[in-house]
Design a protein around this nucleic acid. Structure first.
Length: 479
RNA sequence: GCUCCUAUCGUCUAGAGGCCUAGGACGGAGCCCUCUCAAGGCUUAAACCCGGGUUCGAAUCCCGGUAGGAGCGCCA
């Protein structure tokens, strides 16, 4: 094998909720970086907080990742299954003197913090239990389960050469001795991350930039463990349209919600990859192109706002160019979601092809295509008032007779019939097509009329025309 | 408060000292096309946070301000 260490990245969510849109982008960047360099992309579930972690959240995260196609190259790692390993490392550090017991109570620490804040200092542990040569430690209090703290270097600096942000330096004096094991012996986040990244041979850590301040601490622990720190890439977060941190009140923040909103997974990925990253003027990238062109050093340093309008535009581009057969299962999912069974009616791919230029999302497509598969729930009021008039009824009646005897139910034949009919009556096509639309689709919006009727089929078309004719004659008719 | 980070049209971005009269995309406005809705075509408005340097020359480099963000837990 080559002596050059191959790239290994990881995405490490904590299962306290669904997969966030920002998390999805981090996962995508992590995945792309690995693929771009022929490396591996791994998944790690950071569930050490048993209070807040749930199986449901784990499932939600897997669902989101599955939908986006960002699945781990190997079996995901769960931190809760590695407690023995963490304990072992902590024991080792205690023995080596790179960690020590601290008997401060939570109350004591709270007081310490409060006093420091009052003095306008950065709150931090004062090192009262930190062993030093010649130093006399306080007397061990009764009944206090000690925590384990990492013995952070007191001086010098830690330089993080971030792949996105560039060099960032931290003074060790600013860092305090963080807790790596709680009173009950369970390890804490910053410690688990370090041990896992080390054990998993992670070469490149791609994560949200809310972690930059954790990085020097992690590097120090890694060094204390004799491990080579990985390279870091801190990706800025995604903001809501108002420039404020994305939250529920901005609408959809969970990846899976975008499925319900009618997005195609590859479209969402495309939008996400362009959010904070670019390759010249190119807007659309296939998965293959993303992998080939993605350059993490070109990721923007500043946070970006999520723009639903543009995301929808990207989705529309995908809807328009994707293979309809590939889109069909998602479309099926949406139709069933609103209680429409697409089994009886035109092929989904054919409807997708007919509708896609007028539908930016699958939700929109579903709304505008239900009439192909389900009975009309009534006419759109405005459209009916405008087109299903007495006059419109007469047109529909005559047309229905003509279509009834049409020998071949094909789009060209229908085109011929409808156009010929309009011409014969000296009417503009609009005068004929619009009433037909409302009659068969329930609204004045549909694909070109010949395609619409062809897809709908002879039986349904004739029945709906007949129903519309009687509607026009009924009490709802206009004079 | 302290530490760290950031700053180009409304939004996403191009821009590596002269190619910038600052380009593209979304969104906006207008026109064309049209059986509806769209799609498409064309046109158009719209930005270098501020102030100092460095330089013949700065959106680009440096410093300072301002504004925004993140972190400062026995949370992750």
């Amino acid at each position: 094998m080559s002596a050059v260490a191959s790239v290994v990245t990881r995405f490490a969510p904590s299962p306290t909720g669904f997969l966030h849109i920002g998390g999805a982008r981090t996962a995508l960047f992590s995945y792309l970086y690995a693929r771009r360099h022929g490396g591996r992309y791994l998944l790690r579930i950071e569930d050490t907080d048993r209070e807040r972690s749930t199986d449901e959240a784990v499932r939600a995260i897997f669902d989101g990742l599955d939908w986006l196609g960002l699945v781990s190259d190997v079996e995901p790692v769960f931190q809760t299954q590695r407690f023995d390993r963490y304990r072992e490392v902590i024991e080792g550090m205690l023995e080596a003197g790179t960690a020590y017991h601290c008997y401060c109570t939570k109350e004591e620490l709270d007081q310490m913090r409060a006093a420091q804040m009052a003095r306008k200092e950065k709150p931090r542990y004062d090192g009262r239990w930190r062993p030093e040569p010649g130093k006399v430690l306080p007397e061990r209090p009764e009944g206090v389960q000690p925590v384990v703290r990492f013995k952070n270097p007191l001086s010098g600096e830690v330089l993080v050469d971030d792949m996105i942000k560039g060099p960032i330096s931290f003074q060790n004096e600013e860092l305090d001795d963080l807790i790596i094991a709680r009173g009950d012996g369970t390890p804490t986040y910053n410690f688990c991350v370090v041990v896992d990244d080390m054990d998993m041979d992670i070469t490149h850590v791609v994560r949200g930039d809310d972690h930059v301040n954790n990085t020097p601490r992690q590097i120090n622990i890694l060094k204390a463990l004799g491990a080579e720190p990985p390279a870091y890439a801190h990706v800025p977060m995604i903001l809501g349209a108002d420039g404020v941190k994305l939250s529920k009140r901005h609408g959809a923040v969970g990846v899976i919600e975008y499925r319900a909103l009618g997005f195609l997974p590859e479209a969402l990925l495309n939008y996400l990859v362009r959010l904070g990253w670019s390759h010249g003027d190119q807007e659309l990238f296939s998965r293959q192109e993303m992998v080939e062109l993605f350059d993490i050093s070109r990721v923007q340093k500043a946070p970006a706002r999520f723009d639903m309008e543009k995301a929808v535009w990207v989705n529309h581009q995908y809807l328009k160019s994707a293979d309809p057969v590939h889109v069909a299962p998602e479309f099926d999912w949406h139709l069933r979601r609103v209680g429409v069974d697409p089994a009886h009616g035109p092929a989904l791919a054919a409807v997708i092809e007919a509708q896609r230029e007028r539908c930016k999302t699958l939700v929109e497509m579903t709304e505008k295509s239900k009439f192909f598969y389900a009975e009309l729930e009534g006419y759109n009021e405005k459209d009916a008032a405008k087109h299903l008039t007495a006059e419109g009824g007469a047109v529909l009646d005559a047309l229905r007779e003509r279509l009834e005897v049409l020998p071949q139910w094909t789009a060209p034949a229908l085109h011929e019939a409808v156009n010929g009919f309009a011409e014969g009556r000296g009417l503009g096509l609009g005068k004929v097509a619009q009433p037909i639309r409302v009659a068969v689709a329930g609204m004045a919006i549909s694909p070109p009329i010949d395609q619409t009727l062809f897809l709908l089929g002879r039986e349904r078309t004739l029945a709906r025309l007949a129903a519309a004719v009687s509607y026009c004659r009924g009490p709802g008719a206009q004079p």
